[in-house]
C-alpha cells in the first residue's frame, strides 16, 4: 500500500511520449557569490534548460484501446521552471476548432487520433506558438491511480454539483477526493455553467491538488524514486529514464503558490453538425509569449 501510495509521485510522468527538445538554451555566466550567513539553505535543480513545457492530456481511451491514438478529453499545456519553482498551465478546451497540419481544420483533440503525440504537439504548437518539450498522455484510469498514489487530493470547487460517485456531492469550497471522485471532478461538464471551459479549469484544480500532495511528501525518503520508477515502468514511454528522473525532481520543485492557471477563451459555435469552440488564438499566443521563457505568467490571462 505504501508503495502504491508513493508510486505516482510525479504528476507529469504518466503515459509519456517524447518530442525532442528544440529550444536552444543559453547557460547564464557563472557568478561567484558568497553568502555570509551561518545558517541557511541552498536548493537548486541543475536542469538545462531550466524550463520544460509539457503537453499533458487525459485520454478517453477505454480499456484495450490505444491511449496514444485516442481522443484527449483534457488538454493542458504546462510549463515548469525547476530553478524558480514557477509554473503556468494553459487549459485548451477539448472542442477547440483549429487547423491540424496535413488534415485541415478539426477539433484539436482529433490530432491525437490522426497522428499520435507528435501531431498533437505540432497542432498545439501552431495554435499557441509554443512547442512542448514532452507530450504526456494518461488514461482516466491512470489519472485515478495517480490520485490514489498520492493519498487523495483536495480541490477547491467554485461550483456545487451532484454525482453518484460522491454521495455527499461536490460542494463549493474545499473537497477531499479519492481517485474516482477526482476523475469525475476533472471530467464532468454538463452541470458546469461554462461547460468545457469550466471543466478545463477543474482539471487544473485537480492538477494543483496532486502537486500539493507531492510537495507535502517529496522529502520522504525514496518518494520521488518510487514515483518516477512507476511512471517509466508501468506506462508506455520512450522518455529516457535518466531524463525522467530529473524531470520528476523538477516537478517536485514547483511551488503551488507560484503556479498560474488560465483557460483559453473562445466562442462556441458549430462546424457542420459538430458543436465546437473557436479559441482565442491571440490570447493563447499572448500567454505563451509572456510565460514561454520562464514559465512565469504575470498580468492577465
Amino acid at each position: 500500500m505504501r508503495r502504491s501510495r508513493t508510486a505516482a509521485a510525479v504528476a507529469g510522468l504518466a503515459l509519456l511520449a517524447t518530442i525532442t527538445p528544440d529550444a536552444a538554451y543559453q547557460e547564464p555566466p557563472a557568478a561567484l557569490v558568497s553568502v555570509a550567513r551561518d545558517d541557511g539553505r541552498a536548493q537548486a535543480i541543475g536542469r538545462d534548460p531550466a524550463v520544460t513545457w509539457i503537453l499533458a492530456m487525459g485520454s478517453d481511451a477505454r480499456p484495450g484501446q490505444r491511449v496514444l491514438r485516442s481522443r484527449a478529453d483534457a488538454i493542458q499545456l504546462v510549463g515548469i521552471n525547476a530553478r524558480t519553482g514557477h509554473a503556468t498551465a494553459i487549459g485548451i478546451p477539448r472542442d477547440s476548432y483549429v487547423p491540424i497540419p496535413g488534415y485541415g481544420r478539426n477539433r484539436v483533440n482529433a490530432a491525437l487520433t490522426f497522428g499520435g503525440p507528435q501531431l498533437m504537439a505540432r497542432t498545439v504548437a501552431q495554435m499557441t506558438g509554443l512547442r512542448p518539450d514532452y507530450v504526456m498522455i494518461t488514461s482516466f484510469r491512470g489519472f485515478e491511480r495517480m490520485v490514489v498514489a498520492v493519498g487523495g487530493i483536495t480541490v477547491r470547487s467554485p461550483f456545487a454539483f451532484e454525482d453518484i460517485v460522491r454521495p455527499q456531492g461536490y460542494k463549493v469550497g474545499k473537497n477531499r477526493l479519492n481517485g474516482l471522485q477526482a476523475h469525475i471532478f476533472a471530467r464532468i461538464r454538463k452541470p458546469l455553467p461554462r461547460g468545457d471551459f469550466d471543466r478545463s479549469a477543474n482539471q487544473q484544480r485537480a492538477m494543483m491538488g496532486i502537486l500539493r500532495e507531492i510537495r507535502r511528501k517529496r522529502e520522504r525518503p525514496g518518494f520521488v524514486e518510487r514515483g518516477v520508477l512507476a511512471a517509466v515502468r508501468d506506462l508506455s514511454t520512450d522518455l529516457n529514464p535518466v531524463e525522467a528522473y530529473r524531470l520528476g525532481h523538477a516537478v517536485a520543485q514547483v511551488r503551488p503558490s507560484r503556479v498560474r492557471t488560465c483557460v483559453l477563451r473562445g466562442r462556441t459555435g458549430s462546424a457542420g453538425a459538430a458543436s465546437v469552440v473557436f479559441p482565442d488564438i491571440r490570447q493563447a499566443r499572448s500567454i505563451t509569449r509572456r510565460a514561454g521563457r520562464d514559465a512565469r505568467l504575470e498580468g492577465r490571462c
Partner: peptide, 21 residues
C-alpha cells in the same frame, strides 16, 4: 556536478562550502 548544477552551486557557494569563512 553537472555543468548546469555547478553553475547554480557557484551562486550558493557560501552555503555549499566554507568559502566565505
Amino acid at each position: 556536478f553537472t555543468d548546469s548544477a555547478r553553475s547554480r552551486a557557484r551562486r550558493d557557494l557560501g552555503l555549499l562550502t566554507h568559502a566565505d569563512r
